[in-house]
Nucleic acid binder design. Structure first.
Lengths: 345, 345
DNA sequence: CTGTTAGCGCCTTCAA
DNA sequence: TTGAAGGCGCTAACAG
C-alpha cells in the first residue's frame, strides 16, 4: 500500500497551511482563486484523494443515506432505487442499500447496521410483517431523520411518501363495476401494511358507493406471490357465487391468476375481468394485457431523497407536514374491457 | 443532537482506560472476561455505538464494497444486487451502490466517488460505451481490488465473474438451426462489450459448424431497447432474404420484436422463430413464450461478493486466476418450437 | 485572504 | 492483563 497523500503534503510543497489547502479543496469562497488553482493542480499531480473518514469524523456527518427495502429484485423497487440514486448522486450523497427480504428480523438488523454506519438519514419501505417502531426509535432519539415510502409507518416525527392507495383501489373497483362486474374478488397482501389495507378500503367504498354489499369472504389475504395467484383461483372456484372480476393488489400475482384462469378454460375478460396494480412491465406483455395502476416508482424514489436532502440541508423539516402523496393512474387494458368485448361479439 | 457516548465515557464510569474499553469492545483476547462483561453492559446501558469513522480513520479500512452497475432498474441487475446484498450483509460488509446509466462519463465519476469513499473493494459491470481502464487505474495502484462481473474488462489484476456467453450464443443458434432455421438474424448490443461480442462469436461458430455462411449483414448492432426491437423488424423486412429466425441478445428487445412481428401479421414461430437472452420474467409471460437463456444473476452477485471478501480477508487473490464462469442454460419455449408446430399442423 | 490550534473517537505500539 | 500517549487526516473556531 503506497502511503496516502494528505493536505499536509500539499501544504508543505506550496508553503501554505493545511487549513488553506482544506478550504481551497472545498471551494471555500474566502480563498484566492489563484491559490485555489495551484492547490488543485498539485493535488491532482500528487494523486491526492480526500479522506472521507477524517472529514466525517470531524464534521460528524457522513454524506450517506441508508435505504431499507423489502426486496431488491422487484421491478417496482428497482425503479424507486434508480430514482433515488440519481438524485442522491447529483447532490453528492451516497446510498447504503439493504433489503429486509420481507422479514422483520432482517429489517431490524439492517436498521442497526445503518445506525452504526451513522447514515445521515434513513429511507425505509417496511417489510411484510413488521410490527412496531422500536428499531427506528434510536434514529428519532438521535434526531437522525427517518422517512418512509410506499409501505409506511405513521409516526409523528417521520415524513412519508405514498400514493393515494385508497383512491387507486376505489378507481380500480369502480372501473370494474362500470364494466358490469358485480362480484369482485379482491386478492390482497398483508393487511398490516398501509398499501394493502388502503386499497382494500377503496375497494370497499367503491362497492358501497355502487350499492354492492361488502363481504369479507370476497377478500383474500395472501403473500401476492405467483403461487398465491394459483391459490386464489382455487379459492375463487369454491366461492358460492362465481366472481366476474378479480382485483389483485399487485401485477405479479394478477398475471399468475390470468395464466391459471386461461389454463382452466376461462375467457378473460368475458368470463372474468382482471385488474392488477403497479404497472409492472409484464402487465403489458401478458395476453390479454392487464388493467393496472401506474405507480410512479422512480418519482417516488427521487422525491424521497429530495425531501430527505432538503431536510438535511436545513431547507425543511422531516415531519409529517412534509409528506407527499404522489399521483397514480388507472391504466385500462384488455383484461377488463368487458362491455366493449361483449358489444363487439 | 444528543452527544454521542464514546469509549472515554465508558472508561470513566468503570475507572478503566479507554484502551481497555476499546480492546474489550473488539473482543481482544488479552482482556479479562469479567472486565469485558462489565464493559459490554455499561456500553449497552449508555446506548454506546462505535464510531465507524474514527475506527476507519485509524484502521484505514471501511467495511464497504462499492458497486457500479449500468442500470438499477433491470430485472437482471436487481437479481445480481439481491445476491450481493445477501452475502455482503452476512459477512458484515456494506454495499455502496451506484449506476452509470450506461454512460462512460457517469461511470468514471462514480468510480471517483467510490475511490474517495475508500471502499475496500469495487465490483463493476461496465456501461455500454466504456472504453479504457483509466478510471480504475487508481484502484489498482492503491491495491484496492477491482472485480468485474457480466460486462467485464480483461485486466491482469482483476478477477471476473461471467457466464460462457460464447457457448450460450452457440447453443441458442444451434437450437434454431435444429428447428430448421437457416436464415438467422442476430440482433445484438454494443460489440465493445464482451457479452455481446462473445454471443456473436457463438452465433457465428454455430452457423459455420452447420455449414451456413456467416454474413455481416445479418448482424444488427443496436442498444437492445424496446425501440430497437421495432427497428430490428424494419431492418429485417429490408433484407434480400426474409429470415426464418431472430436471435436477440436480450429479452426486452426480443419481446418487442415479437410484439411488432405479431402486429405485422407474422406467425411466431411458424414464420419466424425468436430467441432472447436472460430469462427475464416477461419471457414467460409473452405469447408465445420466449425461448431464452437462463442467466444466474443472483448467483453471480453472490459469488462476486464472496470472491471479493475472500480476497479481502486474505483467503485468496483477486487476479484472473480467481475468475469464475457460471453455468447458464438454454430454455426452449414456444417462440422457437418450429418443427413440432409444423408437424402438428 | 491565510495561519494557528485544537480536537473529532478510535486503535496500537510501548511500557508496566 | 491493563494503562499512557500519540496520531490517523481533516475542519472549524479564532486570530491575524
Amino acid at each position: 500500500m503506497e502511503k496516502e497523500v494528505t493536505i499536509y503534503d500539499i501544504a508543505k510543497i506550496l508553503n501554505l497551511s493545511p487549513a488553506t489547502v482544506s478550504r481551497a479543496l472545498n471551494d471555500h469562497p474566502a480563498i484566492n482563486s489563484k491559490t485555489k488553482l495551484s492547490i488543485a493542480n498539485t493535488a491532482a499531480e500528487l494523486g491526492y484523494r480526500s479522506n472521507t473518514f477524517a472529514s466525517n469524523l470531524r464534521r460528524k456527518s457522513t454524506s450517506t443515506l441508508g435505504v431499507i427495502v423489502p426486496r431488491l429484485d422487484s421491478s417496482f423497487m428497482s425503479a424507486v432505487l434508480a430514482g433515488m440514486e440519481e438524485v442522491a448522486n447529483k447532490a453528492g450523497y451516497n446510498l447504503l442499500i439493504s433489503q429486509s427480504l420481507e422479514s422483520q428480523g432482517k429489517e431490524k438488523s439492517n436498521a442497526k447496521t445503518m445506525y452504526n454506519s451513522r447514515v445521515d438519514g434513513l429511507l425505509v419501505s417496511l417489510a411484510y410483517d413488521t410490527e412496531g417502531f422500536d428499531h427506528f426509535e434510536n434514529f428519532v432519539k438521535k434526531r437522525v431523520p427517518v422517512l418512509f415510502f410506499d409501505r409506511i409507518f405513521d409516526h409523528s416525527e417521520c415524513a412519508t411518501i405514498v400514493i393515494d392507495n385508497e383512491k387507486a383501489g376505489y378507481d380500480v373497483t369502480s372501473h370494474l363495476i362500470m364494466q358490469g362486474c358485480t362480484h369482485i374478488l379482491h386478492v390482497t397482501g398483508n393487511l398490516k401494511r398501509n398499501v394493502y389495507i388502503d386499497r382494500l378500503s377503496g375497494y370497499r367504498k367503491a362497492l358501497e358507493a355502487h350499492g354492492i354489499a361488502f363481504d369479507e369472504a370476497w377478500v383474500l389475504e395472501t403473500d401476492l406471490s405467483r403461487e398465491a395467484g394459483k391459490a386464489a383461483v382455487d379459492y375463487m372456484e369454491k366461492l358460492p357465487v362465481r366472481p366476474d372480476a378479480i382485483f389483485v393488489a399487485n401485477d405479479i400475482c394478477a398475471i399468475s391468476c390470468i395464466q391459471e384462469l386461461k389454463q382452466r378454460g376461462y375467457r378473460i375478460p368475458e368470463d372474468i375481468a382482471i385488474a392488477g396494480f403497479n404497472n409492472d412491465p409484464v402487465s403489458q406483455v401478458v395476453e390479454p394485457s392487464l388493467t393496472t395502476v401506474y405507480y410512479p416508482g422512480k418519482e417516488m424514489g427521487a422525491i424521497a431523497v429530495k425531501t430527505m436532502i432538503n431536510h438535511l440541508t436545513g431547507t425543511s423539516d422531516i415531519d409529517p407536514a412534509n409528506s407527499v402523496v404522489l399521483q397514480s393512474e388507472l391504466l385500462i387494458r384488455d383484461s377488463s374491457r368487458k362491455l366493449q368485448r361483449e358489444a363487439r361479439n
